[in-house]
């Protein structure tokens, strides 16, 4: 696949509903160690709600699809990941407005816009033990590898996200509920970085089909 069309976007979001359903307990366990044990449940609830909207979105442009996903996440996730992922899709939508397919470069632009929104909403930076520790290296890897095409770009992005997420383990959380633990937050993976890695991994799976 060289482009990401609206059908694929819907397939991606549908897959995310399944993925977060399966990973619900995993993410919740991670969050239980350093947060308030709701990340898995929140993500599962939010993306399940998104999944119910997808049938009605068949044939709509990608901007509309992203925007609907964003608003659904904002109102159903409940935790901080609601406004964070919601803002991610909302800003990605601004790049994808009125488009039925995104080129590899446009996917990069959408990721870029979405991740910037996460940065400005969460006011976190790399190394704070947040989802950005997966997303920022992924974006950089994608932009570097995207000349080779969409899928190779996403492959590199997922690799980078996984590495970045794994690297959150020794970090001390600077943002969110986990930051209340201070040094005790070290030694655990960041659930947000993991859920972000799943998000990109699902996109790679969809794009590779």
């Amino acid at each position: 696949m060289t482009e990401l069309d609206s059908k694929s976007v819907i397939a991606w979001l549908r897959l995310l509903g399944e993925v977060y359903g399966q990973k619900k307990d995993y993410l919740t366990d991670l969050d239980a160690a350093i947060g308030d044990a709701d990340h898995g449940a929140n993500m599962a609830r939010g993306f399940a709600a998104v999944a119910t909207k997808l049938d009605a979105l068949e044939g709509k442009d990608i901007g509309t699809i992203f925007k609907t996903a964003a608003m659904t996440l904002l109102s159903t996730v409940g935790g901080a990941s609601g406004p964070l992922y919601g803002s991610f899709f909302l800003q990605a939508a601004s790049v994808a407005n009125n488009k039925n397919a995104l080129t590899a470069a446009e996917v990069g632009a959408a990721l870029d816009a979405g991740i910037k929104a996460v940065v400005s909403r969460g006011k976190a930076q790399a190394g704070d033990k947040t989802m950005l520790d997966a997303l920022l290296p992924a974006l950089a890897a994608y932009q570097e590898a995207v000349v080779g095409g969409l899928v190779p770009g996403l492959q590199k992005a997922v690799e980078a996200a996984k590495a970045g997420s794994a690297a959150t383990k020794p970090l001390i959380a600077k943002k969110g509920r986990a930051s209340y633990l201070g040094e005790r937050s070290a030694g655990h993976l960041d659930p947000g970085a993991e859920s972000s890695t799943f998000l990109l991994d699902a996109l790679l799976t969809t794009a590779s089909q």
Binding site: T76, V77, G78, G79
Partner: peptide, 12 residues
Amino acid sequence: TGDDRSELGTDA
């Protein structure tokens, strides 16, 4: 949050 707002969470 949740259907009857009985779960803990916020909604923008």
